[in-house]
Computed example of a mutant assay.
Amino acid sequence: MATFHLRRTAPLPLDETWRRLTEWPRHGAAVPFTRVTVTTPPPTGEGTVFVARSGLGPVAFDDPMEVTVWRPPADGSPGLCRLEKRGRLVRGWAEIEVRPGPGGRTRVLWREDLRVRFLPGFCDPVLRAVSRRMFGRAVNSLLRRP
């Protein structure tokens, strides 16, 4: 199990930060070799399911996720989204939290716990480091692009 967290401060309003981080198809543009498809009707909320398909050609895997907590920010209060990863290869969860920061900025906390089937526990430090870097770049990209 590889658990990690990321912290960012975005020069964006709370609602805009939330929107950028929770528009699931945008994640496909931010993560290399990945396409994200939402499989339930809009709007996003608890019970929304989407699948991130990562890989090249026949060497690819699906990472299905379900939104289990959906509390968008309102009236300056923090927002929280929790995803449960339910794939055959990748399991775990992710939480995206946005809260007001100084000067109209938004603080972002991304927490994630990854478990990859068939990957022995002694690989967790490498999985943690690689995941933290990859997700960190994805979060930066999502926050930069309108």
Rank of each mutant, 00 (worst) to 15 (best):
P32L: 09
P32Q: 11
P32C: 08
F33L: 15
R35G: 13
T37Q: 10
V38G: 06
V38I: 11
T39K: 00
T39V: 15
T40H: 11
T40I: 13
P41V: 08
P41F: 08
P42K: 05
P43C: 06
P43G: 06
P43L: 06
T44E: 09
T44R: 12
G45T: 08
E46H: 01
G47W: 12
G47E: 10
T48W: 13
V49Y: 04
V51F: 01
R53H: 05
R53C: 01
S54L: 01
V59T: 08
A60Y: 00
F61T: 13
D62F: 02
D63W: 00
P64K: 01
P64L: 02
P64C: 05
M65L: 11
M65E: 11
M65K: 04
E66W: 00
V67C: 12
V69H: 01
V69Q: 03
W70V: 06
W70Q: 06
W70C: 10
W70T: 07
W70S: 11
R71W: 04
D75H: 08
G76D: 06
G76W: 07
S77I: 00
L80A: 05
C81I: 08
C81W: 04
R82W: 02
R82Y: 01
E84P: 02
K85V: 08
G87L: 01
R88Y: 00
L89Q: 09
L89T: 13
L89K: 07
L89I: 14
R91N: 03
G92H: 10
W93M: 01
W93Q: 02
A94N: 11
E95P: 10
E95W: 06
I96P: 01
I96L: 11
E97Q: 14
V98Y: 03
V98S: 03
R99N: 04
P100S: 13
P100L: 02
G101L: 09
G101N: 06
G101V: 13
P102Q: 10
P102C: 01
G103W: 13
G103F: 14
G104E: 12
R105A: 12
T106R: 01
T106C: 01
R107H: 10
R107D: 15
V108H: 07
L109T: 15
R111C: 05
E112T: 09
D113V: 07
L114N: 04
R115S: 08
